[in-house]
Write a protein that binds this DNA or RNA. Structure first.
Lengths: 247, 247
DNA sequence: AAAATAGTGTCTCTTAGACACTATTCC
DNA sequence: GGAATAGTGTCTAAGAGACACTATTTT
């Protein structure tokens, strides 16, 4: 592996051994009124760690292709889903001696929200044999995941649910134009609970979150005003959570 | 996963080149009613990047010594300050081609809050020639910092200030026992603005944040009840920010 | 008593939540 | 008109902010 020895006094000292560096992306979308995450199945070849197990989308940093960590995450997202402009946020990093049998490794984890209409068929890539959208239930996912990805996915879901209480993140799960009812529904799917219509609308409309477009969504009932996000990629923060819990 | 590998088909494929892995820690404390961050001065030896510049405390991950990233951060904190049990939170990671002249590198950044009374003289360590507590003004620090540490420090300060609005973080900047006035003062130092006494006390006492100890702080005036944190290492989250801004 | 800080009470304003009401479309 | 969903108005409760007030110590 890596060397570039240190040891001469007064010379630049670099570590003899470098951890493995990967980037993983927890890619979320909504399908059939459920929150889903993209899983890829690991290669079955002998010598590969966690053969056949499901894992988050990800892989090694490529120091030639990738300008930086975020570009690496975007590349992986693009390779798996074809989506190029998602909501992408860094979740954190997990690194240590024993999370990968191949040695000391660090994964740099992002989470992405992609619109319902973009969540088409995921493609499998190198070192993987398949990919699928897995529904998320109350406490995560049914599959046992490779490496420490279960823990990472739990962290991602927790971050998402927490942030939804005071930000506009669910808007990034919707297509470009949506009604307020659809936005509310998106919140309800992620939060796993109903919200009150009047308060929801007051709150959303009192911010710089959305702006109406001159179109309506037609249906077997009264047409609904369509809106779009005011700024396409940065979320809005509210000053309160949706429902204060007990102190 | 990714290849660029040892190239035998059907064999474990590892990347030929691995990024450099470092851990940096933004260590904050309060001294003389100012928020301070610990800076270390980089070595002046030829070949060292950013010679003589000030930087956040940090250094390479040591795959032999460090069990995981957090242990590495704790080690660096201990080496610089002697503090063993701080408030420690992962801030994020910064990685890319060009942030370090030695090549593609990733730094894994933590921020730590240490109590006023623990913030004694910092020691300098390997590859550094000095260390100091640098006061933080409105927009950061006067020094130009090495690498991308200025950007990282800005992110750390932003995270701290944001989180202070709705968490109990400033409590970790105080000694074990403190009065409510001292706690309020700690908030005011970090936030850079005054808070209203009555609302502050109501808010703090309505949570599980602190518990009184059977002692008072004496002075040339009415003695004040002393409190300590209920749980020593996990912050409390409030349901609202301190001061709602304009929608 | 004066100085100084600790700690409380009261009033107002904002906003979430509950819930009932009205509005507009398709059938 | 009925079904269905869009969208509004009204009332209440909780908590923040402002601010004045009381309390308890030292000097």
């Amino acid at each position: 592996m890596k060397k570039k020895s240190t040891a001469r006094p007064g010379e630049p000292s670099l570590p003899l051994l470098r951890p493995l560096s990967t980037v993983d992306v927890a890619i979320f979308t909504v399908r059939a009124d459920r929150l889903h995450v993209l899983l890829v199945q690991r290669n079955d070849e002998p010598g590969e760690p966690c053969p056949g197990q499901w894992a988050l989308a990800g892989g090694f940093v490529d120091v030639d292709k990738d300008e930086n960590l975020e570009a690496c995450a975007l590349r992986k997202l693009r390779e798996k889903t074809g989506v190029t402009s998602p909501y992408l946020e860094q979740l954190g990093c997990w690194g240590g001696k024993s999370r990968d049998p191949r040695g000391w490794s660090v994964t740099h984890v992002y989470f992405a929200l992609i619109p319902t209409d973009a969540a088409t068929k995921p493609v499998s890539g190198a070192n993987t044999t398949g990919a699928k959208w897995e529904p998320i239930s109350k406490h995560g996912v049914k599959e046992a995941l490779a490496f420490d990805h279960e823990q990472i996915l739990t962290a991602a879901i927790t971050r998402l649910r927490n942030k939804v209480e005071y930000t506009s993140l669910p808007a990034f799960l919707l297509p470009r134009e949506f009604t307020l009812s659809e936005l509310q529904h998106s919140y309800e799917i992620v939060l796993g609970r109903k919200l009150e219509k009047s308060a929801f609308r007051t709150r959303v409309l009192s911010t710089e979150l959305v702006t109406p477009v001159p179109r309506f969504k037609e249906g077997p009932n009264r047409p609904a005003q369509l809106y779009r996000l005011k700024s396409a990629n940065s979320p809005v923060f509210f000053q309160r959570t949706f429902k204060p819990a007990e102190g």
